[in-house]
Amino acid sequence: MTKIILPELGEGIVKATIACWHAKVGDSLQRGQEVCEAVTDKASFVIEAPAAGKLESICVDAGQEGLVGGVLGTIE
């Protein structure tokens, strides 16, 4: 299982809102495929799949806030 992590976005940025998911649970993903977008402070950041596999779970739904370094979802 591989975790999709909200990456470091910059000094002082500790959280971001997940604007949308481009995949749903069960979808097959390629490594590097865009899976979701995080928004902070008028900047939108595209997050990619860190590994190939199936999207196993979404831990932070669209509209919710995730913490930097926290798990947004998992890939099986």
């Binding site: 976005l9 910059g10 000094e11 940025i13 902070t40 008028k42 950041f45």
Partner: peptide
């Protein structure tokens, strides 16, 4: 520099 806040 990979820093969104600094870039903005």
């Amino acid at each position: 520099g990979k820093d969104l806040k600094a870039y903005m």
